[in-house]
Design a protein around this nucleic acid. Structure first.
Lengths: 342, 342
DNA sequence: AAAATCAGTGTAAGCGCTTACATTTGATGA
DNA sequence: TCATCAAATGTAAGCGCTTACACTGATTTT
């Protein structure tokens, strides 16, 4: 059954009594073929069940209509969500999505870039801006348009994302406004991660403006897991004087912290306040609900797709598109305890 | 800068002083070339920064080393997780992953199949088994090997997944063992969704064995959202007699139900028990923690990748690989209230 | 020592498609 | 009526790669 050879352009051309060029044109630029002929060709296509061969098409036209995305991991809901809408938008442009993951490792990201390049992707979606210059150089050399998403960036690349720094600073403003002075932070791993770095620095910058120096703002970095966050929270709570608020680099860390708080018999927010970042599902489900920063991943995914397609078509684009974030005030941020711990 | 034409096999061959065939062999079957020659060729490859052209390769070799996956949506953590490990495993086989989404719609799934086919995928990962015969027929015609994942199935297709029916029945056993007799269920939308269907029927079958007929087991179907589940839970709680346990088709529904329970002033599990399915992150984070069924998505992703690669290489495979599930007893399932509601 | 074998390499024929250019056709204007 | 031109279509040259087959020289077998 699989021995029936796939029909080719030639077969269709013969069946329709035209040349292969005409068939090709019917498929790629229908208006350059007169209606009657087109009709005939399309019938032949239908009848033979013809579909163009990808390899042949890619070889001859030098484009694949394929877009690559290299993200840290789909296990992280924020990337999964963004990628989903990116893919949806892409498919409206007739492009398909090739996915690879880097596991937050720039060396692996580079490897995947090479895979993508050899796959002939027309464009590439990357996360953030923190990567060796050589990786960027590699893409430029290859002439592959690319985009950093989920954050903004400096340099001359294109970005579609959030101002993580400003959002973190904004949230810190709310924290300070509640009267907190003893802040602490559980940040994501900042090494080669500009989102985590910006969030950390946003908090630090806002605190500094309020006269709270970096030496007075303990920061522990934790991997993207409940347990690691719980451990970090434990350490922070052992500090003296004890922080009255723990700002977390993302919601997963915040929830890990909340669990540890309960374990330690600490009430949130009466004894200690906790904030998150991302507003993933989980933030609305814990008790009390998490005060966090909403990050519109879907909107970003769409915007990224649009921008990348423009880039590929060599249409002009803005260098950066900033997607606004919003602080979601729920139940985990309150004023500091009246009687600062013994 | 982008005018520097990409080096081709020919360029490499010339630079290394060999024929294109030898270069090709160095890349694809290195052991068929003597070490000294290979060395020389590899140096030329390095020096020119050569990477094979995807189109040319695909055209000549009639394979793309690309695997497609059509999933309902990456927004759902269980698919995102499984896909992540599927992709990781694939990349070890030198294959890359093309992703498309169907939005739980079989017509859209079919469209995406055609996209994938025209993309020349070597194989295809599908979810479950519920789809029109014509879709399956399409793939067979095209000679594209495919696999249903996340569930087992009948017919002659290949599957890597869970026995959703048995797992749901098993959990129902636990529920009955607690003494519950008035069961209710919030199922996922079962239309064209074999996972949701099997889970529902698993519950029903187990209940029936215990003498609880379908007419005594109210089932409401709800979309994959907290709100829809909350609404359904509300309806169920308005029933008289009121169910003492509400079994949910997945964890998202269960959490939605729990939220509504709190809203209604109902304690879980003292006033009403709730169970989930999937054991996603959220299940360990709500209070009390959710009693659910653990489904090893990562393991399944890996197994699916392995099986699909075998299928592509025409190696023998088992028709079905069942990934075991496990009941996770946490805090939301208890005995029915001693004093059945007024 | 001749024959058979084999490893290493080269030659060249496509794979199925797009597209620049050539050709044909019919309409238009002088 | 005939040159002119545009629209529709055909011709054919690749795109960059893989691979069947041919060739060469060395090694083994008889």
């Amino acid at each position: 059954m699989s021995e029936i050879t796939k029909p080719t352009l030639d077969d269709v051309a013969r069946a329709a009594g035209v040349s292969t060029a005409t068939v090709s044109r019917c498929l790629n630029a229908p208006d350059r073929v007169i209606a009657t002929t087109r009709e005939r060709v399309m019938q032949a296509v239908e009848k033979l069940g013809y579909t163009p061969d990808f390899g042949g098409r890619a070889l001859a036209s030098r484009r694949t209509n394929t877009i690559g995305a290299i993200i840290p991991t789909m296990d992280n809901a924020i990337f999964a969500r963004g990628l989903q809408s990116f893919q949806e938008a892409l498919s409206k442009f007739g492009k398909t999505l090739l996915v690879a993951s880097s596991g937050y490792d720039t060396a692996r990201e580079r490897e995947q870039m090479e895979v993508m390049a050899s796959r002939g992707v027309d464009g590439l979606l990357l996360i953030g801006s923190a990567r060796p210059a050589s990786s960027v150089e590699f893409l430029r050399r290859r002439g592959i348009p690319f985009l950093g998403a989920w954050n903004l960036g400096d340099g001359d690349g294109c970005f579609v994302g959030f101002n993580n720094h400003a959002a973190a600073a904004g949230l810190t403003g709310k924290v300070l406004a509640q009267g907190h002075r003893r802040l602490a932070m559980i940040a994501g791993i900042t090494h080669m991660n500009d989102r985590a770095t910006d969030r950390k620095e946003g908090v630090q910058a806002a605190a500094e403006l309020a006269g709270i120096g970096r030496d007075q703002l303990p920061v522990i970095e934790a991997a993207y897991s409940f347990d690691d966050a719980a451990r970090a929270f434990g350490e922070l709570m052992a500090l003296s004087p004890r922080p009255t608020v723990v700002m977390c680099g993302n919601d997963v860390l915040a929830v890990g912290a909340m669990q540890k708080a309960r374990e330690l018999g600490l009430r949130v927010p009466e004894d200690v306040s906790i904030t998150g970042f991302d507003d993933i599902d989980i933030a609305g489900v814990v008790a009390p609900k998490l005060t966090t920063v909403r990050v519109p991943h879907r909107r970003m995914g769409h915007a990224a797709a649009e921008m990348l397609v423009k880039l590929i078509n060599k249409q002009p684009v803005e260098r950066q598109i900033e997607i606004p974030t919003a602080i979601v005030e729920r139940g985990t941020l309150g004023p500091p305890p009246a009687d600062p711990q013994a």
